[in-house]
Amino acid sequence: MAKISRLSGEQRENLVAYLDGELDEAAAKEIEQALASSPVARHDVDMLSRTWDLLGQLPTSPAGEDFTSRTISSIRAAEKPKARVDDAAVSRAIRRTLGLAIALLVLLGAGTAGFLATNRWVPNEADEILNDYEVISELDKYLEAGDIDYLTKLQEHREFTEHDEPNTP
């Protein structure tokens, strides 16, 4: 860095742009004047130029022979199947949703039918109790009465009949 200390910071930055032909006329002229008066700056420009040329020694790396065909194939593969996959995916999703909906409906129907069937035709313990409730609630009286003949005789007496009528089962 000390070698180009005679150049200003801007001039140092402009050296490369000068070599690259990227300076406008006025700036290029300024660099040329600086180079004319500074052997150090000339040395640096020379070194910048020669070291830059060394990049040309880097090996070239062309693409493989089948690069274009492989690339186009991969593009086709990425593009076309995507459309097919999308269509197929949509129809698969529709079929799956329909299937699920149908299965749910069948399940719901079967459940309802089962409930109704068991509720209507298969009596459970609670139903039997409810059906016999009136008898059960008066069971003590029936047990006390003993048999039907006693009750028939009891009914023949008016005084019992009138008072007991509301409680007669």
């Binding site: 402009n14 490369v16 640096d44 070194m47 070291t51």
Partner: peptide
């Protein structure tokens, strides 16, 4: 960028 890069390479 290029000025610094080429100076580094130099």
């Amino acid at each position: 960028l290029l000025s610094r890069a080429r100076e580094n390479l130099r």
